[in-house]
């Protein structure tokens, strides 16, 4: 099985450790994951802001970069949702039947990380160790657009050393919403501050989710409040082991040392 990593534009530019964690994790599970360097972005920022014409070349880049892979794995429910549910809209807009045919191939092969682990690889115990108390926020697109259900929880429950505490009103949106976060910044922050409050109420050390975009928003508020609670991507927890935990250059805790390595 040829497996490609869709690292996503935001992880590529801002959260490279999440991408490294997926590579570490999948290799540990025996998957020789490739990173097609022609990839850029899933085009969701353009599509969700209404720029469909502008999204056409971006989707074209996507299908060209990932052509021929059996599975495309991404540490983002939102980007997986974009490929599966929105690329066809962009392709129709392009009027190019070849692009429509291409997205019909790449779309269904795009899997969010927890879906890939549980459904494609059939594992829930990935051999991870993470001795921290965390709370899980199901991001809207993974929850409602993809329907990942309890897969992330199944994976987290098998992590040694990890204590998972329930997040009150977990299924309510954090308020990120892509360009919503700046176009309607006040409303976005009002939603996010309630989410941050619920996170703090749990007493967890970290809030875990499958999307760094939502975590950037929730974490940005938690940081501004000097709450001492930090966001962590699911992939980084699952990549963490007894050997990597505590090391400043290991993928799981890389964020702790900044990106200076």
């Amino acid at each position: 099985m040829r497996v490609a990593l869709l690292v996503t534009c935001i992880n590529d530019a801002l959260y490279p450790d999440t991408g490294k964690a997926v590579v570490t994790l999948l290799r540990r599970l025996g998957v020789d994951v490739d990173f097609p360097t022609a990839q850029t972005c899933c085009a969701q920022p353009m599509v969700n802001t209404g720029y469909l014409d502008e999204a056409v070349p971006v989707v074209r880049t996507y299908v060209d970069a990932f052509a021929g892979y059996d599975a495309i794995v991404t540490p983002s429910g939102s980007c997986a949702g974009s490929a599966r549910h929105q690329h066809s809209i962009v392709a129709r807009r392009s009027g190019d039947p070849a692009l429509e045919a291409a997205v019909a191939q790449t779309g269904p092969r795009t899997h969010e990380l927890s879906e890939f682990l549980v459904d494609v690889l059939g594992v829930t115990d990935v051999g991870a160790y993470f001795p921290h108390t965390v709370t899980y926020h199901p991001t809207c697109h993974s929850l409602r657009m993809l329907g990942v259900g309890d897969r992330p929880r199944q994976l987290l429950e098998k992590v040694r050393g990890l204590t998972l505490v329930d997040l009150p009103q977990a299924e309510e949106c954090c308020g990120f919403g892509g360009t919503f976060a700046v176009k309607n910044a006040d409303t976005s922050v009002a939603m996010g501050s309630d989410k941050a409050r619920h996170v703090r109420e749990t007493g967890a050390e970290m809030v875990v989710a499958g999307d760094n975009s939502c975590l950037m928003h929730i974490g940005g508020l938690l940081s501004r409040e000097r709450s001492g609670v930090r966001p962590v991507h699911l992939a980084e927890i699952l990549a963490s082991t007894e050997d990597s935990e505590g090391r400043s250059d290991g993928p799981a805790v890389g964020a702790r040392a900044g990106e200076r390595a």
């Binding site: 490294k20 700046v182 910044a185 922050v189 996010g192 940005g220 508020l221 501004r224």
Partner: peptide, 29 residues
Amino acid sequence: PGAAWTSARDLPAPPAESFRAWWQRTDGG
């Protein structure tokens, strides 16, 4: 326009090295 974000939310500074730069420098680690 970035102020609409940072007026209420901290934002991580971009890392020195992107994921793709890391991948190419280290041949995927």
